[in-house]
């Protein structure tokens, strides 16, 4: 079980490569530029990971995307949620 952290936009090559590497049990956390995925509920990774994909709320707020994420009913995490998520997974792989 791996926690994948994406820091680049959904249309980046980092994002494409992460999609290729996600396993059935893995989770995804979107931080930094990756939170712009909130604008696109049809992004493939939302389907691919369903219940195990999260957005970091402080990066959403910084970019003015918090209410859009809420309207799209996307799961967000605070910093302490981020920390406990990294503790739940054996390893973390960051895609930047």
């Amino acid at each position: 079980m791996i926690l994948h952290i994406l820091t680049k936009a959904p249309d980046s090559s980092a994002s494409t490569q992460m999609q290729q590497a996600i396993g059935d049990q893995d989770a995804v956390l979107l931080i930094e530029e990756a939170v712009t995925a909130a604008l696109d509920p049809s992004w493939a990774t939302w389907q691919q990971c369903k219940a195990r994909i999260f957005l970091l709320s402080e990066d959403l707020t910084a970019r003015g995307l918090a209410s859009i994420a809420e309207d799209n009913e996307l799961p967000t995490l605070e910093m302490d949620g981020f920390v406990s998520l990294t503790e739940q997974y054996e390893k973390t792989v960051t895609w930047y």
């Binding site: 079980m1 791996i2 290729q20 390893k91 792989v93």
Partner: peptide, 17 residues
Amino acid sequence: ADQEIPGLLQQHAKILN
């Protein structure tokens, strides 16, 4: 093959990207 990449990552205890 692309579909074997997730398995390859699972197999390794440590990964640097």
